[in-house]
C-alpha cells in the first residue's frame, strides 16, 4: 500500500509541478468549450441544448492530451524498468499511475465544468448531475486511455495514435454521461445513466490494469 501511495504521490508532484500537464489540460478544456459559442452563435436555447455534449466531448479530448506522456517519460529515463521490478504487481503500479493521471486531469476538469455549464446556459438542476457524471466517467477515460498509452509506448507517432485507439473505446462514457445530464435537464431521473457510468467504471477498474500491465511488460522486453 505504501508503495502504491508513493507512486501516486510522485506522479502528483510531477503533475502539479511546472512541467506537469495539469494546467495545460485545464486550459485546453476551458478554451475548447469557449470556442463553441463562437462557432454556433450566442443564442441561449442553442447553447443550453448542446451544453452537455460540448462539455463531455471537450472533456474526452482534454483527457487524451497528456496520455501519451503517462508512461513515456518513465520509460525514457528508466523509471519504468525499476517500477516493473518493484515488489508491487505491475497492474497495481499501472493503477497508481492512472489514479495520479485522473487526479491531475479528470478531477480538476470535473470541478471546473459547472462553471462552464453556467456559461453555456445549462439548466441549474442539471449542473450537480453533470458534476456527478464527470466524477464517475472521467476515471474510466484515464483507465482506458492508459491502455492506449501503454500499447503505444515506443511507437512512431504515439501521441496521435493514443486518441485514435482510445476514443472509439470510450464512446459509452460519452453517451451515458451526456444522457445523465440531458435526463436531469428534462426533469427525468438521471439515476439509470449514472448507474451505467458506474458499471462501466467498475468493469474498467477491474479489467484494464491487466491490459495495461501486459502492454507495459511488452514494451520493456
Amino acid at each position: 500500500m505504501s508503495a502504491f501511495l508513493a507512486i501516486v504521490a510522485r506522479d502528483l508532484r510531477l503533475g502539479f509541478g511546472a512541467q506537469g500537464a495539469m494546467l495545460t489540460t485545464l486550459l485546453f478544456f476551458v478554451l475548447a468549450v469557449s470556442l463553441f459559442p463562437l462557432g454556433v452563435g450566442p443564442e441561449p436555447q442553442i447553447l443550453a441544448r448542446i451544453a452537455a455534449g460540448v462539455i463531455w466531448v471537450a472533456a474526452l479530448l482534454a483527457a487524451m492530451l497528456s496520455l501519451d506522456r503517462l508512461f513515456q517519460t518513465d520509460q525514457e529515463d528508466g523509471t519504468l524498468d525499476l517500477l516493473a521490478q518493484a515488489p508491487l504487481p505491475l497492474g497495481l503500479v499501472a493503477l497508481a499511475k492512472t489514479l495520479a493521471h485522473w487526479l491531475t486531469t479528470g478531477l480538476p476538469l470535473s470541478l471546473i465544468a459547472p462553471l462552464l455549464a453556467i456559461l453555456l446556459q445549462m439548466e441549474a438542476d442539471a449542473i450537480p448531475v453533470l458534476l456527478a457524471a464527470l466524477l464517475l466517467g472521467t476515471p474510466s477515460l484515464s483507465l482506458i486511455g492508459a491502455i492506449g498509452a501503454a500499447l503505444t509506448l515506443g511507437a512512431k507517432r504515439g501521441a496521435v495514435l493514443v486518441p485514435l485507439l482510445t476514443l472509439p473505446l470510450v464512446i459509452p462514457v460519452l453517451i451515458f454521461g451526456v444522457g445523465a445530464v440531458e435526463a436531469a435537464a428534462y426533469g427525468l431521473s438521471a439515476g439509470p445513466h449514472l448507474l451505467l457510468l458506474g458499471a462501466f467504471l467498475a468493469g474498467a477498474l477491474a479489467l484494464s490494469p491487466f491490459a495495461i500491465a501486459a502492454a507495459v511488460r511488452l514494451a520493456l522486453e
Binding site: I144, I147, L151, P168, L169, P172, G203, A211, L218
Partner: peptide, 13 residues
C-alpha cells in the same frame, strides 16, 4: 491486446 480490449468493449459500445 488492442483487439481483445476492443472485443470486450464492443458489446458495451
Amino acid at each position: 491486446i488492442l483487439a481483445l480490449v476492443g472485443a470486450i468493449n464492443l458489446p458495451i459500445i
